[in-house]
């Protein structure tokens, strides 16, 4: 008992030294080795009121993405395209540092990152979101709520967005005669209700966040670990396992061998997620 209390006190008073002792042995306080990620679980259609939704857990880090479809007239500059608008929310509930009434810079950055991907068509071809007749388009509002901010938020938010998009079914519409505006297809046709249609998504991106601690690469850090890291680097690999995006903002330098290790770890996650 006395020993564990001393350990706890040491961890609280000298978190960096405590963590360094683990890293020097190639281990982490939660029992993982440095290049080991946390288990991922993905559950789709958890919120019945949304058009589609997905709950993704990465260890304890949790995000819930929900999509609501709305109808709009197409933009003049992009007449043949609908839109996917991603918004990441860090509600005050999810961590000790977020308080009500303020949009945290972290939420704004995540929104920027994911919103950019969705608008550029990197997740799916936006031409699929047009209605028959072309007078109106779908706008898919994908709101991602972080329920437990336990590190690697960029990964868990992207995975939740992708899973919600995979689960999305667009209702069948047919063009109305005169006005040209699309209307819901009738439910009582002789062939039964027209089938809703799934989106054809681009090969999914796989994200991975790594931290650098005293020259060592730490894969998939928790919130506690993120606070200790010298620098964080987020990678995305595409369907072919190539790097499709790297962001590393500030902090200590990233060695070439670290980038290679991180890329390998991201490939491993990619294969595990897309595996048979």
């Amino acid at each position: 008992m006395v020993v564990s209390l001393e350990g706890d006190a040491f961890a609280r008073l000298y978190p960096r030294e405590y963590y360094a002792k683990f890293v020097s042995q190639g281990m982490r306080p939660d029992g993982r080795v440095l290049t080991q990620e946390r288990p991922i679980s993905i559950v789709r259609d958890v919120v019945a009121g949304a058009d589609s939704s997905a709950l993704v857990k990465l260890g304890r880090a949790t995000a819930l993405a929900g999509i609501k479809l709305e109808v709009a007239s197409p933009e003049d500059e992009r007449p043949g395209e609908g839109s996917i608008i991603v918004q990441v929310e860090l509600p005050p509930m999810c961590s000790a540092s977020s308080r009500p009434g303020l949009v945290s810079p972290r939420a704004a950055r995540l929104t920027e990152e994911l919103g950019g991907l969705a608008e550029s068509g990197a997740l799916c071809d936006l031409a699929q979101l047009t209605h028959p007749g072309g007078r109106s388009v779908w706008v898919a509002y994908c709101d991602v709520y972080v329920l437990d901010a336990d590190g690697s938020l960029s990964d868990v938010c992207l995975l939740a967005t992708l899973a919600a998009l995979q689960a999305l079914r667009l209702p069948a519409l047919e063009p109305e005669g005169a006005g040209g505006a699309a209307v819901p297809a009738p439910h009582d046709t002789p062939e039964g209700p027209a089938a809703p249609r799934a989106l054809r998504l681009e090969p999914p991106l796989t994200p991975l966040t790594c931290g650098i601690f005293g020259g060592a690469l730490v894969v998939d850090p928790t919130a506690e670990e993120e606070a200790l890291m010298d620098a964080l680097v987020c990678l995305r690999v595409n369907g072919d396992g190539q790097l499709a995006g790297v962001s590393k903002l500030g902090g200590s330098g990233l060695g070439r061998e670290h980038l290679a290790t991180a890329h390998m770890a991201a490939m491993r996650r990619h294969l595990a997620l897309q595996g048979p």
């Binding site: 709305e70 109808v71 709009a72 706008v139 209702p171």
Partner: peptide, 13 residues
């Protein structure tokens, strides 16, 4: 470039 046109809700049921 964000989508700027206003949209209206769509109800399945």
């Amino acid at each position: 470039m964000a989508f700027t046109n206003s949209s209206v809700p769509f109800f399945r049921h």
